[in-house]
Design a protein around this nucleic acid. Structure first.
Lengths: 238, 238
DNA sequence: CGCGTGATTGAGCTTGGTCAATTACGGTGG
DNA sequence: CCACCGTAATTGACCAAGCTCAATCACGCG
């Protein structure tokens, strides 16, 4: 059974967003996080930048795999302040942890392609497949571990430490983790809201690191980690 | 089968710490979070303030229920900076989320009494008891939800908003949630490291709220929420 | 080539941090 | 019971990291 293609229907597509152009911008998911058994239930979805995938409070009826692009999950305050919890990149699974209702909003940080799975099917599958159940538990556990790391970052790290940590984190998650050039598909403002900074500070620190030859800003969304050693010292993790 | 009593053996007790004095300081756990089925496997433990219950990286062989006192879980940076993730008060369950190894350190924020359960026994029990399994899953899910709330607080809230949120949070978790007087069993420095502030700032904001008649500082560890309405506005949650 | 969004850069300010006393309190011993 | 002592909390003066506001730049797309 081939996955069928569907366009996300509940929000209007932004002008200039054309699925057939945007979809293949990023490479396909690496096989590491493949959940083969689920693919039969999947529906392909195309989501334009800043479109919502689901909102806080929504019933958690579906789970998603990112195929291309990037998704952000976030919490919003009434006055508009945002905290971006996590970015989901190609290969990442999204929305598996919520139980009943969403407690975060998910939006596309860049034009993205997702595969959507019905939650009930997955849970049914997990009943039978111990390995799948196990991987889902590990996913939740990893998500919690990440949260705690992020809390340390937000509560105790300086702007420079945050940026260094973030760059290394993104490097570790890139298709080839050893690679020196990494993609930052999200905007400066998304990075800022993820790191508890302002977009100006993000920009300033990145450009300072560039001047110091620690990194190389190839373009707004491409960074070369010129001196990973220094970045690791800056990151302050052990 | 009665739970047997044991003194935490792997760290030396602080001078002045006497189990029979310290144990009954706080009231017993409310029945809300009772996991009756587990009690048969439990061992009572007494832990003096600042003693470690487990450390980051330790094998996660046990889970705990707080009976009295308070536990803090935290991450530590090499230079000593701390991020306190969560406080565990009487009735709370601790250490159920870790999988394989601890990813946080747990210490007593105040002299505490715990019941320790062997993890394997609990997991075995959960196989049979669907209700228990469910409650354990809800526990993990709640823990993740808390993490995200805390990330918003750490990333985006002002000092005053953080304190207000914290006070309301503690009020909601107190034995009788409607109660106006709440206990803060932990030190200012613990509160600071939980909220991503310094202890001086915590003290200043608390005393400012006192001067403004929003709260009443009865003692260092007892606060009366005089004007909950104002606190809720300050907290900034919707 | 022009336009618009997003990124960069600068100047000045504010919040919360740092450093340093000082005060208060709980627990101990006389 | 009270005085003492050590720790924890408070308070003050000063400082600086990062924020705000505002202008400029640059890149991608039509």
């Amino acid at each position: 059974m081939q996955p069928q293609v569907a366009i996300n229907g509940n929000t209007k597509l932004k002008i200039g967003w054309h699925p057939e152009v945007a979809a293949p911008k990023t490479e396909t998911a690496p096989p590491s996080t493949d959940f083969k058994a689920l693919d039969a239930f999947g529906t392909v979805m195309l989501v334009g930048r800043d479109q919502e995938v689901y909102a806080e409070g929504d019933p958690a009826d579906y789970c998603y795999k990112v195929v291309a692009g990037a998704i952000r999950t976030l919490k919003l305050m009434p006055d508009g302040r945002r905290q971006v919890s996590e970015f989901y990149l190609p290969g990442d699974l999204l929305g598996f942890e919520d139980c009943e209702a969403r407690y975060l909003t998910a939006e596309a940080a860049a034009d993205a392609t997702l595969i959507r799975y019905p939650r009930r099917r997955i849970e049914a599958q997990a009943e039978a497949d111990q390995g799948l159940a196990r991987r889902l538990r590990d996913l939740a556990s990893g998500s919690l571990r990440n949260c705690h790391k992020q809390m340390l970052l937000l509560g105790r790290k300086s702007a420079q430490e945050r940026i260094a940590t973030f760059l290394l984190e993104m490097a570790g998650r890139s298709p080839r983790p050893g690679d020196v050039v990494i993609e930052l598909p999200m905007s400066r403002s998304d990075i800022a809201d993820h790191l508890g900074l302002t977009l100006e500070t993000v920009s300033r620190v990145l450009n300072r690191l560039h001047r110091d030859n620690t990194i190389n800003l190839l373009s707004a969304h491409r960074v070369e980690l010129a001196d990973r050693e220094t970045l690791e010292e800056m990151g302050g993790e052990a």
